[in-house]
Amino acid sequence: MSVVVRTIARILVPVALLFGGYVILHGHLTPGGGFQGGAVAASAVALLLVAFGTSAVKGLKSPLSVLEDLGGVAFVVLGFLGIGYTFFFNVLAGSGGLFGAPVAPGPNPGYLNTGGTLPPMNWAVGFKVIGGLGAVVVLFALFGGGDDR
């Protein structure tokens, strides 16, 4: 039973992380975005916990919370980018540079290099959500000195 679970987890954890990353990356083109992808990736932490026990996630607590803080700071800083106009102004959209390709109106297949500040914000929020939700799961698992079953 436990061997099966572990084997499945070994396969599923990278898959969950990859899928989460994909969802975050294509957030401005397909359904998804920072929150959804972050939640999917954070469930990898829960999966690790289920398969390998508390000891496997013990070391993750500190990095995850740092990741969350950095994601939050990055998000606010991205908001500050537009301060020349207003807070949260999308300075990169349509500028032609990074993420700045203009989008043709109407249905189109979508290009990754669009969206202005939206993709970086997606990443910032994604990291924040991975960090935050992962840290919550780890904190719950660690409370009271680890596995008491």
Binding site: V23, P31, G32, F35, Q36, A39, V40, A42, S43, A46, L133, V137
Partner: peptide, 11 residues
């Protein structure tokens, strides 16, 4: 739907 499945159902 993705958010609810990921957040509500899983986490």
């Amino acid at each position: 739907a993705i958010a609810e499945a990921g957040v509500g159902a899983a986490l």
